[in-house]
Design a protein around this nucleic acid. Structure first.
Length: 256
DNA sequence: ATGACTGAGCATCTCAGA
C-alpha cells in the first residue's frame, strides 16, 4: 500500500502538477491540503480519468482537504471529532479502506489570530490525540498523514529559518506532537531516516529553495502494525523544482 | 547591494501562509 500527502497550495493552480505526479508515482491514496476551494470547484474529473475517486472537504478561499483514492474507500468523518461543531474550517478527512483507517489533516498554523489562534492549534492537536487514541484502542491499523505545521525537533528546520517563538517550533507545539507519539504512533520518515534533512517545505521567499532553507512539517504517523511493515518513507523533493510549484512537496510512505 | 513570494477575493488592497 502506497500512501501520500501533499499540501498543494490551491488545487486549481496545481491541477496539472497533481495529474502528472499521480501518473508518475501511482499512490493508492493521496491526501491533499490547502485546496482553497469548495467541492464544486474541485477538478475531480481530471483525477477520475486516472482512476482516482475524489472525496472533498472544501471551503471558500482557505484550507480545504481531499482524498484521491484508487482503492475502495468509505468516508467516515469530514470534521475532527471533539472540535466545536460551529468550526467551519475544512481541515480533516477520515476514510476507511479494508480494515485500515486513513486520516488526512491540515493542522492549524497557529501564527495568526493572536492568542486565540494559537489556542485553537493546541486544542486541535489535543482533539487529534484523543481521536487517534480511540482508534488505537480498537487495535486496528491507523495512518495519519498531512500538513501538521510542526517541526518536531531542531533537526527538522534549517538553523534560523524560524524564531524559537514561532507556532511551528515552540515548546508547547512540540510537546503536543510528542503526545501523538507517546500513544503509540510512529513518525514514518524518522523511523527509516533517524538523522538529517528531510525538508517537506521551502518558503517562496528569500530564495529558500536554491539555498535549501527548509522545514519538515508534513508527516505520516503509523500505528504499530503498519509501522512494522513500513518499507519506504520520503519527501519527493523533485516537485519543488518544477515550474510554478507548491511550497510543499509530497510525502510518500510504502507499507508491505 | 541588507534585496526578496503566492493565492483568493470582490480586490487595486488585505489576509493567510510558515
Amino acid at each position: 500500500m502506497k500512501l501520500a500527502t501533499w499540501n498543494v497550495n490551491s488545487i486549481r493552480q496545481r491541477e496539472n502538477h497533481v495529474v502528472r505526479w499521480l501518473e508518475r508515482v501511482q499512490p493508492d491514496i493521496l491526501f491533499l491540503q490547502e485546496i482553497k476551494c469548495e467541492a464544486p470547484q474541485f477538478p475531480a474529473s481530471r483525477f477520475e480519468a486516472l482512476g482516482y475517486k475524489a472525496d472533498v472537504v472544501g471551503q471558500k478561499a482557505y484550507n480545504g482537504v481531499a482524498a484521491l483514492s484508487r482503492v475502495p474507500v468509505e468516508v467516515v468523518h469530514t470534521a475532527l471529532p471533539g472540535v466545536p461543531a460551529d468550526d467551519a474550517q475544512a481541515r480533516y478527512i477520515e476514510i476507511r479502506t479494508g480494515g485500515t483507517t486513513c486520516i488526512g489533516i491540515y493542522l492549524p498554523n497557529g501564527n495568526s489570530g493572536a492568542d486565540a489562534g494559537y489556542a485553537y492549534k493546541l486544542a486541535w492537536m489535543e482533539a487529534l490525540r484523543q481521536r487517534a487514541a480511540t482508534l488505537l484502542d480498537a487495535d486496528e491499523p491507523l495512518a495519519i498523514l498531512g500538513d501538521f505545521n510542526v517541526c518536531p525537533t531542531d533537526e527538522d528546520l534549517s538553523p534560523g529559518a524560524l524564531p524559537p517563538t514561532d507556532a511551528l517550533v515552540c515548546p508547547a507545539t512540540r510537546a503536543a506532537y510528542r503526545a501523538l507519539l507517546w500513544i503509540g504512533l510512529t513518525d514514518a520518515l524518522r523511523a527509516l531516516h533517524p538523522r538529517g534533512k528531510l525538508w517537506t517545505f521551502w518558503d517562496y521567499q528569500a530564495a529558500a529553495w536554491p539555498r535549501d532553507i527548509g522545514l519538515r512539517i508534513d508527516h505520516a504517523l503509523l500505528s504499530p502494525t503498519l509501522a512494522e511493515r513500513l518499507t519506504s518513507a520520503l519527501p519527493d523533493r523533485k516537485e519543488r523544482g518544477e515550474e510554478q510549484p507548491s511550497d510543499h512537496v509530497p510525502v510518500v510512505v510504502e507499507i508491505d
